[in-house]
Amino acid sequence: MMDGEKGCAPRVSLWELFWVMFKIGAFTVGGGYAMLLVIQRELTSRKWISEEDFPDLIALSQAAPGLLAVNISIFAGYKVRGNAGAVVATLGSCMPPFLIILIIAAVFGGYADNPYVVKAFKGMRPAVVALIAVPMIKMARAGCKAWWQWAVAAVALALVAFLEVSPVYILVVVIVIGVMFAVLREGRGKQ
C-alpha cells in the first residue's frame, strides 16, 4: 500500500497535492473526525488512495501520534509523491489554520477588554468545558470494556486533575505496562 511513487494514478503535481491538502486543512472544522468523509472523497475521487486502502490509512493515521487530519495528509502525500509529497502535503494542511489563527491572535489582543467580547467569552467558557467532557465520555465508553480499564481511566484522571502529574509520565508508564502485558500474554499463548 505505502509504496511511495508507484501509485495507481498518473504523476501528480506537487502544486495540486498542496492545494488539495490546503482545502482539507481549511475545512476541517472542530477536529479531524468530522471531516473524514470529505478527506475520503478528495483522495479517492482522484485515485490517490483506493477505497479499499482508505480504512488502512485511517488505522495507520490513528496509530501514529499527532493529529488525525495532519497524519492522513502526510500518508497521502508520501503515497502520491514520496518524501517531497509528504513535506508539501504537511505544509498544505497546516497552512490555513496557521494563517487564520495568526490573524486572530494579532487582532484579538486588541479586543480582549472590549465589554462585548468579555460577555461573549463568559458565555462560551462553560461550553468549552462541556465540549471537552463529551469526547472523554465517548472515548471511555468505546475504550473501557473491562473493570480494570475503567480503573486506568479513573487513576489517570485523578493523577492529572488533582495531583498535577504530567500526562507524559502517565502515558509512558501505561505504554510500558501495556506492552509488558501484551508480550506476556502472547508468550503464554504460544506455549
Binding site: V129, P135, V152, A156, L157, I175, G178
Partner: peptide, 23 residues
C-alpha cells in the same frame, strides 16, 4: 496482538487524561 494489547491500556488512559483537562 502487541499493538492491540497496548491500545487496550492506552485508550482508557487517554480518556482519563481528557477528563482531567475538563475537570
Amino acid at each position: 496482538t502487541i499493538f492491540t494489547g497496548t491500545m487496550s491500556w492506552l485508550r482508557p488512559c487517554v480518556a482519563g487524561l481528557i477528563g482531567a483537562a475538563a475537570v
